[in-house]
Write a protein that binds this DNA or RNA. Structure first.
Lengths: 400, 400
DNA sequence: GAAACTATCGGGAACGATTCCGGTGACTGA
DNA sequence: TCAGTCACCGGAATCGTTCCCGATAGTTTC
């Protein structure tokens, strides 16, 4: 790197202090001192793209190895040298090149999160929760959205693999049929953690809320409030989550020896595409349920609006409880009882588990495919408050 | 790369078809054919981390240059060779290494978005909008959150620079005082686009909604509905946005020759920390306003709850309009009139402008520091519907 | 006083791609 | 037959780091 300006020798050069701001060297072959510094020709070509450690090394008069040591807190460096280097780094506004570092370190400090939709409250909160764990550890987040499209999910996964992320957190789409893309990631030593919409195919940590217990708690709540003709509204049964919630509902009825009617139980995806028609049909029955458990708050909110249209009094003529604690649920009138999901905690837990998997990536005895089950929390509001209507306060989160 | 197995010569080797699945070569020096393929020793050491183009090249029997050409759609390659390579790529499940590519291409196809809070509806929508533009172009998004902390904002910016993102989209924090970090990014040829909370310091494209006009429209709406004693509720005046909205309000009053009272105009950050106390104080005045324009929907929602407590009838005794169209606003009862911000469009516009800046990065004559102003849209709901109360339908977005 | 050790540093090989440059054989046209 | 052109390909430099290995001078140990 440093060449003696007399004999052109490159080895046997040692630095010997400074003179007028320039580093002074000693060549043991010609036994003479010399200095480095840009000459005129070099100064012309100064318009570079960015400062590299090579520049720092040249300016300070050390090798790039030494600069690297200074930058990475190595012990094998003299404190004075380190100081000089760090001062020059400051002066030239050097910024580490993570790309180059990642290439040799084989670690990018990047993790990818794939969700069906970025703007949904649930997923935004989840990413935020994961960020709380990941940011302090120096990880950056690739936020990707699959738009409920299997193809996009695969494309996203491949992009993350190509970007050599250190790990992936994912919730699959409704239409996800295969998991080869995730298996590919795992083959390439990229740990994966699933949440919410999980599967039994890929060997990976999974985080879910207890949908079955949540449904039981919701149903118990309706019964406890004195409702007895219970209905269920949900999507079709191709979604694992839906099945669990439905099962919890049915089992609770059984437990209490309550019989529901077939027409009070609606499980169809039309509830997502054309909710009002389906709901109004149910509510116009002469013999309608006196309380309904909806698979999601979204459906519950639709139901509230339909009830408003038909002038049905919630909670007195009709009790209602949802699932998820959608942000709107506390503000709608009547406010909607629901099972709150610990969204932020799911994100944090997923991130923690992922970090653990990353740390043990090379230990082939390590294997974590356990499913963490977080318990949802019953939130009682006006829609099941049969005795008297209380108004409850809630604080909207800050907005723009 | 390919060495003749007889004479060890490396130049003058040409491939001459296949034999039993192995590539056949011809060495012009020894005038003999030979084949390549893994021998026993090599097979032992097969447990590698990942497939590289070097592996592909070796398997197919071409140079890595040729593999690169096949992968990047170069014209300088025989279609048959290309096909062979692509087949092997498929077979070995080769996945491009973006990190390595980025290093030499000096482009990462990554852009960073810095927002005060990821989980806020406004910002989540914005990121989603930006994603709509960026994903089809092959860009990935680093989603970063500043938590309204100036320090975090700087740290995030530095991390993005170190990651050599191709561009940055940012909305600054409330407490952002300096912009040196953004200037640093620009010096390193990383284009920056600001949105919403903008500044006049950094020379960059900016996207905002017209807060002044929005406020005028909101105020006009109140007047048009027959309200005459108008109040304003907002944060303190250290926020540009707040000033614009306040100015729009005042100018509209002036224009109509309406006089407001000082006590009806509240501009303090206590509205964010302790809203109910401030609002209740105002509403308990004997001589209170008959309509209020709140700087944000959040404040408006607090006001609705306070009015409920005091049994003040909205909209008949008190009219109310907010700003931003917070997701809750359409569901709260009474639903809240507001100025809707085209959130998604802001994200899309910011992304488009950023891409344009990236494309012209090296053209030093190119310079875009224009501010795009998007118009907010008046959404009338029950809170200003003085004549009669209509119920309005709205569709909640899909949730988990 | 030789050997062993320590503190400090430089050289150079990776990492996994892209890309410039030059080479080779085949073909074309005079 | 020979120069010129074209299609195709390989070699090697390069991107900006990290990190292993070896070198050196000074210090300590026996």
């Amino acid at each position: 790197m440093i060449k003696c300006s007399y004999c052109q020798e490159v080895s046997g050069i040692r630095k010997t202090g400074k003179i007028r701001g320039k580093q002074r060297f000693f060549c043991k072959y010609c036994n003479r001192h010399f200095t480095t510094g840009k000459n005129q020709e070099e100064t012309v070509a100064t318009q570079k793209d960015g400062i590299t450690i090579k520049d720092i090394a040249a300016e300070v008069g050390v090798s790039i190895s030494t600069v690297s040591r200074a930058l990475n807190g190595s012990k094998e460096i003299h404190s004075a040298t380190k100081e000089m280097i760090l001062r020059k780094v400051e002066e030239l506004d050097y910024q580490q090149h993570y790309i180059a570092t990642s290439l040799v370190r084989k670690q990018t400090f990047t993790i990818g999160i794939i969700v069906p939709e970025l703007k949904t409250d649930f997923y935004a909160n989840l990413i935020s929760g994961a960020n709380e764990i990941l940011r302090p550890k120096g990880y950056k987040i690739f936020a990707m959205q699959s738009d409920e499209s299997f193809e996009h999910e695969i494309a996203n996964t491949n992009a993350l693999i190509a970007s050599r992320v250190d790990g992936i957190i994912a919730s699959t789409t409704f239409e996800t049929k295969g998991f080869a893309h995730f298996e590919r990631a795992k083959e390439k030593k990229i740990p994966v953690v699933f949440f919410s919409r999980i599967n039994n195919v890929v060997d990976a940590p999974k985080i879910v809320v207890d949908n079955y217990m949540g449904a039981k708690m919701a149903t118990e709540h309706l019964i406890e409030r004195g409702y007895g003709k219970l209905g269920f509204l949900g999507g079709s049964d191709n979604l694992h989550i839906g099945n669990l919630r439905f099962q919890g509902f049915m089992d609770t009825l059984d437990k209490h020896g309550i019989k529901s009617q077939e027409k009070w139980i609606i499980r169809t995806d039309q509830l997502l595409s054309d909710p009002h028609r389906i709901i109004l049909e149910l509510l116009r029955e002469k013999d309608r349920p006196d309380a309904v458990f909806t698979m999601t708050d979204t459906i519950g909110i639709h139901l509230i609006k339909c009830a408003r249209t038909l002038k049905i009094d919630i909670p007195n003529e009709l009790g209602l409880i949802g699932f998820s604690d959608y942000i709107v649920s506390q503000y709608i009138s009547p406010s909607l009882s629901t099972m709150r999901q610990p969204t932020r905690e799911i994100g944090m837990e997923a991130a923690s588990r992922l970090l653990k998997a990353i740390a043990n990536k090379n230990d082939k005895n390590y294997r974590d495919n356990t499913t963490t089950v977080l318990m949802p929390e019953l939130v009682t509001r006006e829609s099941t408050d049969r005795v008297k209507n209380r108004s409850r306060a809630g604080t909207p989160s800050r907005q723009q």
